[in-house]
Design a protein around this nucleic acid. Structure first.
Lengths: 178, 178
DNA sequence: GTCTATAGTGGGATAGAC
DNA sequence: GTCTATCCCACTATAGAC
């Protein structure tokens, strides 16, 4: 979605993404990616040097989508107060992560391969939150809260009867700029 | 550390932990565990039914240590205010996670195997934070903040020049009960 | 409770023909 | 740019002797 790739490379990344999202990280193998587009695994190496390069393309796609989703939330609440803006950003972030759990984990579990990513992409994804909090420390604290909530939710670590909507509200409210 | 195990089982879990902590999750294999204590891998299966059982023992150990560390922090700041208490709990939590990154990840990345854990262990680990925040929603929000900070820190996702001590202070301050 | 031997599965990646 | 053939690796786990 993000970078223009050769059609075949695009097809490989799309197949990799389907596998990852539908069957999880362990299902993302070069053999299975190849199967899915009807070629043999060794042929993939004419389009990507190794598996890590395919994963980087997935991360770039996901990061671009997060940026787009947050920018859209920001646009929607442009002229409302800080409380609504931050709440909407949080909702958008949470929705994206829960809709793409395995991709979200892939995107966040390691250092970003910054040299291999489109220039400015990381900043673009971070910008809406920095604008909403008005300050980088608070932006980072809020990101950490959101990331922690999402990860614990995805890992099934909260009690089954926990009211997580309420937890999100309370967290976002506490982290509002004062 | 937590449960009394047969000496040989204890030795296996300790070896598994060394491997995990020193070389990461991928290095935790039954072969390497066996190597480390000078036996062959198949012999491990006389002491544990499978690899998952060894991991569960690691998780139980780690969870018990987290509980102990948080209880100690709580004890130290027993008669100070809520702000100091929460800050000390946060510092203790962060220190433990950063000192045992791979174990911390193992402990938090999946649903807890609650049926296989000592009774009350999860509650014991959670209790200090619930007491400090006085309320379960705020306790969960604060846990999420701390978990998010730790995971992003461990994953190297913050800018190299970010002042994370300041981010922790700001987050903990914002999440204080009001 | 340890061993040897091995089954069974799967992975990433390369060489070289076409 | 695709193929076949293959290398080399690693893993969990079981069977059966001692």
């Amino acid at each position: 979605m993000t970078e223009r790739l050769h059609p075949r490379a695009r097809q490989i990344v799309d197949a990799a993404r389907d596998l990852l999202e539908q069957h999880g990280r362990d299902a993302l193998t070069m053999r299975r990616v190849a199967d899915r587009i009807g070629i043999r695994a060794p042929s993939l190496y004419k389009h990507f040097p190794d598996k890590a390069a395919v994963e980087i393309a997935l991360i770039a796609d996901g990061l671009g989508e997060v940026a787009t989703v947050l920018e859209a939330a920001e646009e929607r609440t442009k002229r409302t107060g800080a409380a609504e803006s931050l709440a909407d950003l949080a909702t958008a972030y949470r929705s994206y992560a829960l809709a793409h759990p395995h991709l979200y984990r892939l995107m966040t579990e390691r250092p970003l391969p910054r040299e291999s990513l489109p220039a400015g992409l990381e900043d673009r994804a971070a910008a809406p939150l920095v604008r909403a909090t008005g300050e980088e420390h608070l932006a980072r604290a809020t990101w950490a809260f959101a990331h922690g909530m999402v990860m614990l939710e995805l890992a099934g670590r909260f009690p089954a009867d926990a009211d997580l909507d309420a937890t999100w509200r309370i967290g976002v409210r506490a982290l509002l700029p004062r």
